[in-house]
Design a protein around this nucleic acid. Structure first.
Lengths: 338, 338
DNA sequence: TTTATTTACGGAAACGTTTTCGAAACATGA
DNA sequence: TCATGTTTCGAAAACGTTTCCGTAAATAAA
């Protein structure tokens, strides 16, 4: 679009294109005087190098891709903030892709991104993703990829997540200590390793406290609020109704609240609820929601930092790192002892 | 990165680069047999055209830029969803830039984007932006720009927003009808036209109902939660304490809730609150928050659609359109009559 | 047969950078 | 004077596409 480019600048200055180009960057080869003349005119004309020409020539795009299931989710929007803060500082651009938890979409996006459009990728997997060959295929291209939150166990790559097992353990035990005897577990796809870890933490806490594990009160919900509502409602309508809810993701806790209201169940007297969540309104809910608050911003920031570490190291394929950032259990009324 | 390109395909097929290129798109010039051979190999090799070479040559990037103040905000994340849904359908890519309400950052981003990195821009202005010459400068390049939500009155461009005046009027009158005599108005920068409109709607409702307008209970808050908290707290500590709060943005309503809790003020008995908001937990708050719910997804979707309309119309600079999508007042307990 | 016309493809320029290479111009040392 | 070194710049290739143009071969028209 812009009509100001190296050629027009060079012409106006009576210099060659290559001189102008170098005057704008290396500049060790160029006399101080020329350099200043060039930079002055470039500033005046508001010259910005055509990124596509640069990228084509230099074979790097100064762009990273972020692939996430959703952006209407406090965890992911906070993580994006963290990612963006690093990218902006490094003068990189951020392409956002939403999978909406759809495996096919994730595959398609990943495949498209092999073209060199991005220099690296931050990925948080879709819940529907089971087969992971598309990710391995992507890695074969040599493009760095860093997982955050929803990582793959079987793929070798840097990963940033929270202490899912320990947090889930602590949260579950918290419910038990406050009197829960029968704790339901609400989660999304069990094929996600973080969900597995949380489930393991939950089970371990049950076992430690001598509470039998009951598969029938583990509810794996899809990405459909209506359906999830139904699943949770039937859970509560059972004669052997649970007296505690451990929600693996924020949205399910919100739906559980709604179900409780509609069924006239009192929180925390009849049901105690705890959830992984980054809700800013958790303390204002009725009752205030006890949460396992993940360091979302930090996770995003760290993942981006790891990615840039790989981008900056040239040929040396650095060994994958795994960073775990602890979550914090914030006790509120929804889980308090009666 | 990828080692498969037109040249390698051409070599393997015993064809020329140009033939392969055309076989993959126009293909009217190419025999059916060759076309199939080419496409088969391309599919097998997982060929994706280098976007930078394409963009450089075709002078279009298949990318749009979205500039917003923040992503940790239900309105904007829903809007992004709307934008992304259109972009994905059109096979476009979405670059996200966050201004964090900072004028300088907005200016810098806009300036950088003149380079042709994007084919068009969706902009929701930073609250600190007063001077708008950087936007006008940008437009001079001929790149299409569509405002959504936070638009500029003085700039000619397509705009998508909600009925800010009417919604604010209705909301304020709702408070009055439920008994409020002294309604404070919490807003962010008054230089934003949507904020002005909401303020006008508020004033008009007061006037219609014979309530004097009082400048001292209009609080213009910065993007700093601590500070906002202080401002709202002092507002409530006044002897002539307001009995109603109209929050122009979600975050201020949340802070107001917090202040009420800390000061021991009962909502809605002592203070009624209403807010522009897209909180999914509004109905679960204590008490449930009455909201003016903006059609955030729709606004994003429409803005993107308008942008693509301009992108698809070639040379004809289509006249700017202004689309207004109505918000919905959802009455809940925070504003109910005592 | 010769001359058009069509079909199917290749050559090469162009997009705007970056970067390698080389070469003037000038100074330095002998 | 000549050889050598330094400084400062320009020419040109390259990145991978797309597209304009040309042309050989095949077919149709004369």
């Amino acid at each position: 679009m812009s009509e100001v480019n190296l050629k027009s600048l060079a012409k106006e200055l009576g210099l060659s294109v290559s001189t102008v180009s170098r005057a704008l960057r290396d500049a060790y080869d160029i006399s101080a005087e020329t350099r200043q003349r060039v930079q002055a005119l470039a500033a005046e004309r508001n010259y910005v190098a055509n990124p596509y020409a640069s990228s084509l020539r230099k074979n790097q795009s100064k762009t990273i891709g972020v692939i996430i299931p959703n952006v209407v989710n406090n965890f992911f929007s906070l993580a994006i903030n963290g990612i963006e803060s690093v990218a902006q500082q490094k003068n990189y651009h951020v392409l956002i892709y939403l999978t909406h938890e759809d495996y096919e979409k994730e595959k398609q996006i990943l495949n498209h991104l092999q073209s060199g459009r991005v220099d690296g990728i931050l990925l948080s997997m879709a819940s529907e993703t089971k087969d992971q060959t598309h990710i391995k295929e992507f890695q074969k291209n040599g493009l760095p990829l860093v997982f955050f939150d929803r990582a793959s166990k079987e793929i070798e790559a840097s990963k940033v997540s929270t202490d899912d097992f320990e947090s889930a353990f602590e949260a579950t035990e918290h419910l038990i200590q406050n009197g829960c005897k029968r704790i339901a577990h609400l989660c999304i796809s069990k094929s996600l390793s973080i969900i597995k870890d949380r489930l393991r933490g939950y089970s371990a806490a049950l076992e430690k406290n001598g509470i039998p594990f009951d598969d029938t009160i583990i509810k794996e919900c899809e990405d459909d609020d209506q359906l999830s509502y139904q699943q949770i409602a039937t859970l509560f309508s059972d004669k052997d109704r649970p007296d505690g809810i451990f929600a693996s993701v924020e949205k399910l806790a919100i739906i559980a609240y709604q179900v409780c209201i509609d069924l006239g169940l009192c929180i925390p007297e009849e049901v105690k609820i705890i959830s992984f969540s980054n809700l800013s309104t958790a303390s204002l809910l009725n009752p205030a929601l006890t949460t396992v608050m993940q360091p979302a911003f930090e996770i995003g920031r760290t993942a981006a930092t790891l990615l840039f570490k790989q981008l900056e190291k040239k040929r040396v394929a650095s060994a994958p790192e795994t960073v775990v950032i602890k979550s914090e259990l914030i006790r509120r009324r929804s889980s308090s002892a009666s």
